[in-house]
Design a protein around this nucleic acid. Sequence first.
DNA 1: CTAAAGAGACAGAACGTTCTCTCTCTTTTG
DNA 2: CAAAAGAGAGAGAACGTTCTGTCTCTTTAG
Lengths: 188, 188
Amino acid sequence: MSAAEIKAKILGVATSLFEAKGINACAVDMIINASGVARATMYRHFPSKDTLIMAFLRSKADAFYEWLNRGLRNQKGKPADKLIALCILMEEWIGTPNFKGLPFHIGTIEFPEPDHPVNQFSITLAKELQEYFSALAKEAGAPDPAGLSQQIIMLFEGAALVERVAPGSNAAAKAKDAALLIIRGTLK
Amino acid sequence: MSAAEIKAKILGVATSLFEAKGINACAVDMIINASGVARATMYRHFPSKDTLIMAFLRSKADAFYEWLNRGLRNQKGKPADKLIALCILMEEWIGTPNFKGLPFHIGTIEFPEPDHPVNQFSITLAKELQEYFSALAKEAGAPDPAGLSQQIIMLFEGAALVERVAPGSNAAAKAKDAALLIIRGTLK
DNA sequence: CTAAAGAGACAGAACGTTCTCTCTCTTTTG
DNA sequence: CAAAAGAGAGAGAACGTTCTGTCTCTTTAG
């Protein structure tokens, strides 16, 4: 196995464990045992557990954006349609059976201290998301793009939360319906 | 200080610390030092830290329901008005400057393992909330009370999350606006 | 006098991180 | 071409810290 493959394996195993048991509940021992990697090897690729956590959040966010970009790329039509498509894509992402939560705000709950690196990193992730959505809302001609963006984010972050507590409750679909009501009501 | 007062003091101090630093980041030592109470005393009133955590979540939820009940008690008018009043009360609750988060879903993020007592307790808290909102949605004549209730919950839980990451962003007000759009769009 | 509270030592476990030692490849060099 | 050097990985012991929960002893209050 090459160095890059080993790093990817560590990150993959850590991802599964973090999602299944929560970040704080995962010891480094679990990660190295589950990935069959030596302790020193893990620390060579990720100088600290915090680094590994941030890599985990980053990769989840990247995968999410890639999914959105691919889905929105061939979206012609009116600019508002892109915003609608966004909501449908979000519904699919959150509604998928093995959905495990969005990576944008979790870090601030598991690491609430403002000076913790993971907390700070989460805040930049949340800002990124806000800007991504805001740009689409602006294209769609929303009078207050940042506001509409925030409303959509609140809705789907809430859906992700509810989906964790009550799996199979179709929270994603209900969030999408609500988002469409908000968008149509806002763009008039 | 009477026994009841001591118990209340411990819970109060724990509440402040949990909200400021997060539940997992608060050691028992911090709680007893900050409350000036002996270790054994704390363990006499709360047989375990988990018990104290659940008492904390319970008291936050109780305070919330008491606020809602008081606000809705004198709400005459059409049944739908009660649902609108609910949203306004939620906005005030979340938008207050020293708001620290809702107690209904946090537990499932800080304690994601399904067999953890705090996780299970959080699920019952979330169900309680769902039933409270659902009853109001039913009174208001919503075609799918549970669905509308879930949408409102998602919105405000998301707002609570965003408010933590970006304080002063008026997330509560935006959530209320969105909730009203959803309610009006759903009730006809 | 008795039950409760303060003060703090203590055990036991868990966790992140560092360290040592060994083995196996790949690359360099004479 | 062959020997040496080095990098990267496996295995695991060890350290310091932190945390929960128990226990003992002394002091206070009803």
